[in-house]
Design a protein around this nucleic acid. Structure first.
Lengths: 167, 167
DNA sequence: ATATAATTTCAGTGTATTTTGAATGGAGCA
DNA sequence: TGCTCCATTCAAAATACACTGAAATTATAT
């Protein structure tokens, strides 16, 4: 159903998804939409990727929630169709926001919690280590907050970094 | 076995681990070592975290492979003991290296592969989208390579970003 | 060399997550 | 209002992943 040459991409993106905290089906659908010239509807997606409609439906909902795909309607057609966000940068930005929220913020929070509770005099080595961790994560948090404020900011930061690399 | 106040941290770090591409046991052991004043041996770790020695052994091996813990020996003791990398920055750096290799590089590779095979004239929209994705990922790749070259470089980049945030 | 103590491995088992598909819900149309 | 066509939900089944523990291996001491 899917061109052979695209299959590899879809499956790689799928395996990656697992590492990215997205599940395989979600990532495969996302990849399918990225490599689909036309908007695709639920049936096409489910058939092409050999998965149930139910699963496809759930995944599409979640992908929409991430903001990396959009629902579109062809006039005179009752069915919903979907397209991938065409702007790579926007996609990257959205994924970044979601991942910070899921992965980074809770880590920082738990370190701060522990640091606040612990007695600095007891377990000095542990306290010092946690303090170091908290400092570092706080610096990174500030950078990420600035970056992820809006797309312009992310672009600005990326340009600064590009400049640095070029040196 | 573990102080109540540290338990929360260990469990949070453990759940996080799943998102970070590390499994729960690995992350719990890592957290345990971070919050352990003394080097800990296999038995202590397995007992404290209520897991089998076998599992603990595998996790310790993997954590050593990541470079975020080290094996130490107390003289006159046959057992191996382990300590967490005390420098937060180094830890962050090591995790970054590993994650780039696992998550980022294969994604970029698969996009490039697809781009090389596809005919730019057919499926124009898809090609444009992939081209955009490849450009963006390549920029990021350059930055990451520079960053992860060595710790000094990472520090330099972080400082630049700190400067930007402070503006 | 042998005994002993510790670590590592891995097949089997258990647990958690993902996927299915039948039932349910809901929008448009006559 | 009832009919048709999709989309969505969710309990049950399938699958993937993590963990255990006994056996094999390695390291150290005598």
């Amino acid at each position: 159903m899917v061109d052979k040459q695209y299959e590899q991409f879809i499956e790689t993106w799928g395996s990656m998804g697992v590492l990215w905290g997205i599940n395989r089906s979600m990532a495969r659908i996302h990849a399918f939409l990225i490599t689909s010239e036309e908007p695709a509807d639920l049936d096409t997606i489910a058939d092409s990727l050999k998965m149930s409609r139910g699963n496809a439906s759930m995944c599409l909902k979640e992908l929409r929630h991430w903001g990396v795909i959009q629902r579109v309607h062809s006039p005179g057609d009752r069915r919903d169709s979907y397209v991938a966000e065409p702007d790579a940068f926007k996609m990257f930005f959205l994924i970044g926001q979601e991942r910070k929220k899921r992965e980074f913020d809770p880590a920082l929070h738990s370190v701060r919690l522990l640091l606040a509770e612990g007695d600095p005099e007891k377990r000095k080595a542990v306290h010092a280590r946690l303090r170091g961790l908290e400092r570092l994560l706080t610096s990174i948090d500030r950078v990420l907050n600035k970056c992820l404020q809006d797309e312009k900011m992310t672009k600005a930061v990326l340009n600064i970094l590009k400049g640095f690399v070029a040196r």
